[in-house]
Write a protein that binds this DNA or RNA. Structure first.
Lengths: 71, 71
DNA sequence: GCTTTTTGCAATATATAAATTGCAAAAATA
DNA sequence: TATTTTTGCAATTTATATATTGCAAAAAGC
């Protein structure tokens, strides 16, 4: 059982706001459920790399810009 | 059923070589099995974000450096 | 204030990441 | 070339990412 204490992903929330997308709209573009996007923003879990990349492309950002926390 | 055609991760293989680590040694540092590392290098699956980050830290690289392919 | 949209939450179901073991081939080193 | 180390592969099991539905609370718009 792995206790994963993750941080909220504010950068994702901001980037989504900049594109004026709801969680549901982003989810549709990326091909996942709304809940998945919501939980990632809340830091309540651990997406796969391919999903991270899809989100990055939908929001024209890179992995470092949305998912890398400086040390 | 999702057909995932992924590319081999050469950048990871190179970074690991630069640190003179075997797949097994890297796996141990990162806390996963050797197979997991091997399959990621072979592009045969889709690691989680937290694993990608662990690998990055073990090899002192960022997500973009190891896992982002320039469009 | 009322209505609509957006977000959080919870429970259950399904798909797939990752573990484990064992073996064979390849690569490295003596 | 013989020995050791490293890597690939396959089958089975376990943990967890993601889907789905439904509901309630908050936020945004009227």
């Amino acid at each position: 059982m792995k206790m994963v204490t993750m941080m909220k992903n504010i950068k994702l929330k901001v980037a989504r706001a900049e594109h004026d997308l709801s969680q549901e709209e982003l989810a549709k573009r990326v091909g996942v459920s709304r809940q998945t996007i919501g939980l990632i923003e809340l830091g309540k879990y651990n997406p796969t790399l391919s999903l991270c990349k899809s989100i990055c492309k939908a929001l024209s950002r890179t992995l470092d810009e949305l998912f890398w926390d400086e040390d």
